[in-house]
Nucleic acid binder design. Sequence first.
DNA 1: TCCTTGCACATTGCATGCAATCGAGCATAC
DNA 2: GTATGCTCGATTGCATGCAATGTGCAAGGA
Lengths: 261, 261
Amino acid sequence: MGSTTTIPAIDPPAPAPSADGPPARVSLVEELGQRLSQEIMEGALLPGVRLEEAGLAERFGVSRTPVREALNYLAATGLVQKRPNRGVVVTTISRSRLQQMFEAMAELEACASRLAALRMGARERDSLRRLHEGSVDLVEAGDYRGYDAFNRVFHEQVYEGCHNGEILDLARAMRRRVAPFRRAQFQVPGRLVASFAEHAQVVAAILVGDADGAAAAMRAHLRLVGGASARVLHGIEPAEAERLGAARLDIEALESDSAAR
Amino acid sequence: MGSTTTIPAIDPPAPAPSADGPPARVSLVEELGQRLSQEIMEGALLPGVRLEEAGLAERFGVSRTPVREALNYLAATGLVQKRPNRGVVVTTISRSRLQQMFEAMAELEACASRLAALRMGARERDSLRRLHEGSVDLVEAGDYRGYDAFNRVFHEQVYEGCHNGEILDLARAMRRRVAPFRRAQFQVPGRLVASFAEHAQVVAAILVGDADGAAAAMRAHLRLVGGASARVLHGIEPAEAERLGAARLDIEALESDSAAR
DNA sequence: TCCTTGCACATTGCATGCAATCGAGCATAC
DNA sequence: GTATGCTCGATTGCATGCAATGTGCAAGGA
């Protein structure tokens, strides 16, 4: 498994011009799935909250059928959990399971980074470098909301750089699943600066085609991300704590469950 | 990233006594999902075959609703593809996409192997070793059906050895998805013997706790598996060819598609 | 002869209704 | 005073019906 190869430099066939064009007629199920998953990922619907078909149907002005199908879809992606004859709740997980999710995420991203280091084309490498360098402004400004947005794009570019649609899909799916549990990670003191430094290592390795180095750097990066997020979730910081009280998300609720399967 | 560590030897907390007990009342949707996915994975339903709700509903003696939900579930796992207002078909994929699936599978298993080498307990290592050694009989007998069954168990044990439920789930899901495209791989001449030798390398690395070696060995193993399967699919061997003719699975059908997304 | 246009049929998408199951609260027994 | 059993309300699981969309074929025009 040699590292530091000569850069192959094959840019992707078609970076998807993103020409969606028409309003794109979508089904109700898709619409509902989108909105619900967004609310879950953004934290409007917190882990443990119960979702009942009739209520959602009325809220969105549709019948129970499409709501039901949307919930099934969310259950399949892991954002909610179904309990037979007992409805669905936004996914709650134990602390250990959360750690496993972060580890799986780290492994997936390490894998993507490894392949990206080997396969990214010249244009892609350049784009990644500039993207990273641009984020320094956000760090200096302490703009953690802006950095969060940048961060998503950064990791997405690495996924795409691996030139494997399956791994891309796996990484995206995993990212969606962990989203509800990693909100506000950048509010941990010093995390922003540290994140930038870790990204720098990943970028450096990818730029020179150091596959093993890229994998190791990304793995290390996500290990720290996981740590920070866990601290946020359990240390709980004030702003969240209030809302949690209103929606019953106590540590017990997180620790128990897991009986699903 | 050191290899060859001293073996930590922590056996899993509870190997699941497998006491399912009662007949376990399951929903119609689950039942249907199970049966359909099994038929797809076994090849009774070949890629490209159309599945219509009404037909399946009548066949299983239920209404369209549970059939529909089961199909949605299969679509979420990737075994079938849904086209809006146009029904579902058993998943067909392009050759390049198939290669990507095999690569993703290889990466997942390499990852699992790496962790397994670090984390398997003494009992697990011993179990894996004996399982592998037992398979020599199947190889000598040329019993490729038996070997196929053994092979599933072997890889499953490696997944479990990584002690991470998320990675375990990912690997299982990916295995299900590729199943329809890797049938009869062991019928490729010499593949059985080669597979055994490759397994031996994986086992050896895991036994001594050589993480990187285990990952590399498993990756190499699956690269060859992918090659063999692709050859079977495209070279097509006689037994399958007949059935394919009856169900329209020509190379064109495999090459096209992919517009899904 | 080939392409376009219109219509009829088949199939999916969604709405609604009914039965089965689960959980809570109360009554009763110990 | 606590535990056990029962009934009732709430919610899900499944069946069925109707409207919307897509497909295939046939007829007409270039």
